[in-house]
């Protein structure tokens, strides 16, 4: 490629410690896990703890220190997050680091951005076409890998300038997509399967962080679905599918899957779902039960399937058009959850 190799400085690594060069830096440093207990390591350990703590509290990573503390504090923070064995902390830490990188990257020149992108093996070039006021051209494959879960419709490929396999982007958008890549890389690092024996200090810190996280999660407690299935809280797409099914009208494969997964997800027992499909003219009890139990995770790969999100239903023409609440949500299950909550709030208390 046309990359004039930008060599990352220590300042760069302090800002973007997730870069591959950090490994080289750490190798030279020769830091061993047991040495973390040494008093001269305290600033590094302290900074590492701050990184994770700030992530839990405010989705930040705290203020930067001198390079010789800042750079090694990143791998130590990773270890710390792993030591908590807590998925909320891990997710949040990865996101916080990625967000920090995003805000720093916006001040970089195009060459540095290109160098960071190259660290992630992106197929990207500076745009030489003067008729397009956008500085970068990124392969649509790399683009899609980092945008499919972003919800704003501006990120949809159909709303981008796509020519010759390249998506034209400005620096802000490239930095935003690199944020996704950073988050992904850090999440991968945090997946560590076998855990080392952590030094005492690390274990203690991890305990503290866990406590902090518990306080935080407590506030945004996950709600399950109530036992009773409430048809009047179904979103329009499910209402349509449900009615079609009970009248024995033909449903597309995606339609059947959506309805089944939705009903199973909100807690309808598989036997009752089977019942619903009985009126189908091509009904086959054994097959239907098999499929439903498969979706419910009682067979096969044992994963319980979740009903598809709104955008998928739009693609396959299962979405029936939306009401006011639909426009606020991205998933039929969220619709159901909100509607249920609204109705319990509205119902007169005795």
């Amino acid at each position: 490629m046309q990359m004039e190799t930008v060599i990352f400085t220590e300042n760069d690594l302090a800002k973007y410690p997730f870069l591959k060069d950090t490994a080289e830096y750490m190798k030279k440093l020769g830091l061993k896990i047991e040495e973390l207990e040494n008093p001269e390591m305290a600033p590094i350990l302290d900074r590492a703890q701050e990184r994770v703590k700030e992530a839990i509290l405010s989705l930040g990573v705290g203020k930067k220190r001198e390079n010789h503390v800042e750079i090694p504090s990143f791998p130590v923070a990773i270890m710390l997050a792993i030591a908590t064995k807590n998925s909320f902390i891990k997710k949040r830490y990865a996101l916080a680091e990625a967000k920090q990188a995003f805000s720093d990257m916006q001040f970089e020149n195009n060459e540095r951005i290109m160098a960071i992108a190259a660290d992630f093996d992106w197929n990207i070039a500076l745009n030489r076409d003067l008729t397009v006021p956008l500085e970068f051209a990124l392969s649509f494959i790399d683009y899609l890998r980092n945008t499919t879960h972003l919800r704003d419709k501006n990120w949809k490929l159909v709303n981008r300038l796509l020519a010759n396999g390249k998506v034209y982007l400005n620096k802000h958008d490239v930095a935003r997509l690199l944020q996704e890549e950073v988050q992904h890389r850090i999440e991968k690092k945090l997946e560590a399967k076998e855990l080392p024996n952590f030094p005492e200090k690390i274990t203690v810190m991890a305990e503290h962080l866990l406590e902090l996280a518990r306080e935080k999660i407590g506030k945004q407690e996950m709600e399950g679905f109530p036992k009773v299935v409430s048809q009047s809280a179904f979103p329009p797409c499910i209402v349509a599918l449900y009615e079609a099914a009970s009248k024995g009208r033909h449903l597309s494969h995606v339609g059947r899957f959506t309805l089944t997964a939705f009903l199973v997800n909100i807690g309808m027992p598989p036997e009752k779902v089977t019942e619903l499909f009985k009126s189908f003219s091509d009904y086959n009890e054994r097959l239907t039960r098999y499929q439903i139990e498969h979706i419910a995770g009682e067979r096969g790969s044992r994963t319980q399937y979740t009903s598809p999100q709104c955008s998928t239903l739009q693609t396959h023409a299962v979405c029936t058009g939306s009401d006011a609440l639909c426009r606020r949500v991205h998933h039929p299950l969220t619709y159901y959850r909100i509607k249920l909550r609204q109705r319990t709030n509205e119902s007169p208390k005795k």
């Binding site: 499919t148 419709k153 949809k156 159909v158 709303n159 693609t315």
Partner: peptide
């Protein structure tokens, strides 16, 4: 998901029509 985006592109689904031409 990426293939779904390709499908949406080809079928023009979600295309912002003269409202918010996103990239600019």
């Amino acid at each position: 998901m990426a293939r779904k985006e390709v499908v949406d592109y080809v079928s023009g689904l979600g295309l912002a029509l003269l409202e918010e031409q996103a990239p600019e």
